[in-house]
Design a protein around this nucleic acid. Structure first.
Lengths: 346, 346
DNA sequence: ACGCCCTGGGAGAGCGCTCTATGCCGTTGT
DNA sequence: ACAACGGCATAGAGCGCTCTCCCAGGGCGT
């Protein structure tokens, strides 16, 4: 640590002007004589001045920081806390969110601080963190439908934007996908390929997104005469996909099409199918959901319903920035359209 | 937004004591009468007081925040900036680092702010961020050997801890793995299994870790009479592993053992081998490196050299906390030992 | 009984910045 | 020529907190 860092005062003395003038130059406020501006700039680089963020925040009441919260539901046992972070981080979904958020925050000189809120305790900490003014607002990605965090945030009157519509209405902005349309796209593609013995592996049915994907899928199937589609509920993981497919195969060995509610499960499904001697897509066509990185890595590469996560995350950051600046006061929602990406699995 | 947030002053008035006393209670400083402590606590919860972090930081010169920087080398074109973040986030390695860091930071009530520094511009911003006092120190994970960020940080006298020893010496603490031993473990295992026509796919040879893994591997092979081991350089990605294996197979169709410098490449290698009709591990044994999540997901599950990334990241956070607190002033290094994890691929 | 120490609490001086109110000029209108 | 005006810079009042004195009072030793 070098000795005392230079302050505005030091720069002002060096440049022979007042603190206020230096402040104006630093913040790019008009009404400063160009000649003086130059003098000040020189003094700044000569002293190596860097404005103290704490002092600035104290008066502006802004930190240019937002909390990026991955929130789970209910209480989790002590030991599982780290597991939660690990699980979330392991999902390619997370990286896409961060990537989209960072892309928007950066040009605004804002920074994301990462938080995991899988217990009530942790959720209280998030609220406190914001109430302390450590961050200007929160971007919340919930892994469970009945996450209590959004309500806590709304009650505290803190700026926040959610990924996905909350199951209980909350006065916060959110960004979401037209999941129902996604389910429809999957069904249409499978039917269009000529599949007739179609089954599906849904996500956890407590999650609204899972319900919607399934509903859109079923409605479309029904409209084409398939009143009943065998279903097994999965958990959005590779393992759960494998387990689900194993069960479905036992009851419906002649299956020729599968709709998986996400790519991770689709991957597990492909693996099980291959091990059981079914060729994908020749014998069984598989459609995933998300178009995450595994869709490309998977053998065969997955035909999947694209969810533009990066764009959605970017929209979240944009909305939050507007709320923070006070440009937007009422909650808003932005719904994105899914898109079918055809690769080899179907 | 609720109206004006309560301040220390408000709580003091409510409790009928001075600001200083409330501050003492909030910060858990000794020498406060239990009865008064109780009164103050009540006043705090009645007013819903939350200390203002900016004001606190202004005087303590601490933010309880650290920058978690993923840094690349040299300059990257504008368009590639987002790609950099996406690439880093896509690697399972990243999640493990975050998970380990968060695990240590949390009990200390510290928070990580995520930064990507793939251009000189971005690196300057990181330094400025720290000089402004927005964060107390930095945890740096470089993706390239000649990353200039560590030197910038050291020159500015900012607390920082690196993942992996920098290629040019820098006066900063770092955490690393005994990569050489890892290479040795892989060689011994392959030889112990009876493999005799062994090849290897290294990481980028500009990276010290790649060199070391390779050196340890080669030395051990040499010591057992294998003076020459065919080598192709990879790029730590699945694709590069596939490409490398394709080339090796062309020149050495009778290969019976492969050492890959990381799991991602090992996965690509297994894929190519399978597609070419070689059974793993029956015909060809494959050993990876890292023991990342793909080691388990891969078919077959990978025998690999475990790098305890979470523990290493935790050690980084611990070292940084010590530097920040001033408990530790001299740079230190912590070297972890690799461990062979035997699964099915070898 | 007196002085001393030790504990618990208060007063007040900043920390470094922003921003409003104010003042100084040179210029313009009449 | 004088008032009015507008551009530029300064003075100074906080923002909310911590922390160093300092002081009051009670217990104890001699």
């Amino acid at each position: 640590m070098s000795r005392q860092a230079p302050t505005l005062e030091d720069v002002a003395r060096e440049a022979g002007v007042s603190r206020a003038t230096v402040s104006r130059v630093v913040n790019g406020v008009r009404n400063v004589d160009p000649a003086i501006q130059e003098t000040v700039r020189e003094a700044i680089s000569r002293t190596g001045y860097a404005p103290n963020q704490a002092a600035r925040s104290l008066v502006t009441r802004r930190t240019e920081t937002v909390a990026l919260v991955m929130s789970g539901a209910g209480d989790v046992s002590e030991e599982e806390q780290n597991a939660f972070a690990a699980r979330v981080l392991g999902d390619p979904f997370f990286g896409r969110v961060v990537s989209g958020v960072v892309g928007q925050l950066r040009p605004r000189s804002m920074h994301p601080v990462l938080m995991f809120a899988e217990t009530d305790e942790a959720r209280r900490e998030v609220v406190t963190y914001l109430r302390q003014g450590s961050a200007d607002g929160a971007l919340v990605v919930s892994t469970h439908a009945d996450d209590p965090l959004p309500a806590l945030l709304a009650d505290a009157g803190l700026p926040a934007v959610l990924f996905a519509r909350p199951s209980r209405p909350v006065a916060l902005s959110y960004v979401d996908l037209a999941h129902r349309d996604g389910g429809r796209l999957a069904a249409e593609h499978l039917l269009g390929r000529g599949c007739r013995r179609i089954v599906t592996v849904s996500g956890p049915l407590g999650v609204p997104a899972s319900q919607e994907r399934l509903a859109g899928f079923r409605d479309t199937m029904a409209r084409h005469g398939h009143a009943y589609v065998p279903l097994v509920q999965g958990g959005f993981t590779v393992d759960s996909g494998m387990a689900a497919m194993t069960r479905l195969l036992a009851e419906h060995p002649d299956v020729d099409g599968v709709f998986a509610a996400n790519d991770l499960m689709a991957q597990g499904i492909c693996q099980v199918l291959r091990e059981r001697g079914h060729r994908v897509p020749h014998d069984v066509a598989v459609v995933g959901f998300d178009d995450s990185s595994v869709a490309v890595t998977c053998r065969p590469p997955l035909t999947t319903v694209r969810q533009p996560v990066e764009d959605m995350a970017a929209a979240m950051a944009r909305l939050l920035a507007e709320h923070i600046r006070g440009v937007r006061t009422e909650p808003a929602s932005v719904i994105f359209d899914p898109e079918l990406v055809v690769r080899e699995s179907a």
